[in-house]
Computed example of a mutant assay.
Amino acid sequence: MTSILQIGFGPLGVQIAEYIAQKETVKTVAVVDINPDFTGKKLSEVSPELSNEVKIYSSVKKAINELTSKPDVAIITTVSSLEKLIPQIEEVAKLGISVISTCEELSYPWELQPELSTKLDNICREHNIACLGTGINPGFLMDYLPSVMSSVCKDIETITVERIQDATPRRVPFQQKIGAGLTLQAFKEKEATGTLRHVGLKESVYLLANSIGLKLDEVTESLAPVIAENEVASKHIQVKKGDARGVEQIAHGYVNGMCKITLHFKAAIGEPRSYDKISSKGIPNFSSEIEGGINGDIATCAITINCINSILTASSGLRTMADIAVPGYIN
């Protein structure tokens, strides 16, 4: 039985815990969250699907002091920022615990944040643990999956990946992150602060490029609101006509002035059709589409758990999805 320390118990952390509770080979043994309302509670007090024997602690130190043995893996679902995540990773790295995190900037930080990447890599190597950033996007649909599909190609001229999704059934923090329900003025203000966007699109471009052997000269990214033509709503957010119902981002990766990689991300409440599509121009040409798309909340929780065995066998250091053994479903 693989034991898991969960750090972060927001909606995503709770959902991961609920999925782990259904597994036979992994078990959450402690949860850490800074929310004072959670401190000392049993997991069952947060969700009836969870254990009444496992507690929530205010710090890693307090959790470790009460556990009878060291957890095998820490799953961290706290922040999107690599800079803010590193101290959290270092704390468990010093205990010799490997890390899987849903932090978007962790998925492939080498190009955009080289100094922080080297710092984190050194921390992991010093304490002989592996650290992985994963998720459905970034971490799979727009980078790892097209990388795998490129293995059947004799030659690649361009790769285009589209992730178009109706955000109506997604969790509230995701809907807020894409600006659903904001006026256009409020959207622009939040965009200017960097708090409104899908985090990780450029990281996906670099991960995909690295996997297929491209040295990019330039990566660009555009962002725009998806404007509601009529009133739309999710369970928690009402969007008025003329306001933003979501976000559209497009990133391009260039080699010698030629666009080789295009990633098109669009997520909005009331989007009429959801799909994930990978198109490769080369030998052979191909297009592969997942009608309906992959539910991001479900899949992010699933892939985080399903990477556990891979991270336990990975060599020490900062790892990406392209570095580890191919993950698969675990019981």
Rank of each mutant, 00 (worst) to 15 (best):
M1F: 10
M1C: 06
I7T: 07
G10D: 06
V14E: 10
Q15K: 12
Q15E: 13
A17P: 01
E18P: 03
Y19S: 04
Y19L: 15
Q22K: 15
E24Q: 15
T25Y: 07
V31N: 03
V31Y: 01
D33A: 12
T39C: 04
K41F: 07
S44K: 13
K62R: 12
K70M: 15
P71Y: 10
D72H: 11
V73A: 08
A74C: 07
I75K: 04
I75S: 04
I76C: 01
T78I: 10
S80H: 07
K84P: 00
K84H: 10
V92S: 07
L95V: 01
T102A: 10
L106D: 02
L120H: 05
D121K: 02
I123R: 09
R125P: 02
I129T: 06
L132W: 08
L132R: 05
G133C: 05
N137R: 02
G139W: 03
G139S: 08
F140H: 12
D143N: 13
L145V: 13
V148K: 12
C153F: 05
D155K: 15
I159P: 00
T168I: 03
P169Y: 11
R170K: 12
F174M: 13
Q175F: 02
Q176I: 13
G181P: 04
L184I: 14
Q185P: 00
F187E: 06
G194Y: 02
T195Q: 12
E203L: 08
E203R: 02
L207C: 10
L208I: 11
A209M: 03
I212G: 07
G213L: 11
V226Y: 04
V226C: 08
N230C: 02
A233L: 02
S234Q: 07
K235F: 08
V239M: 04
K241L: 04
G246N: 09
H252V: 01
N256Y: 04
G257E: 09
I261Q: 01
I269E: 07
G270L: 05
P272S: 03
R273W: 02
S274T: 13
K277R: 15
K277W: 00
I278N: 04
G282L: 08
I283E: 15
I283Q: 12
S287K: 11
I290P: 00
I294K: 03
I298K: 07
A302Y: 10
I305A: 09
N309M: 06
I311V: 14
A314N: 06
D323L: 09
I324D: 05
Y329L: 12
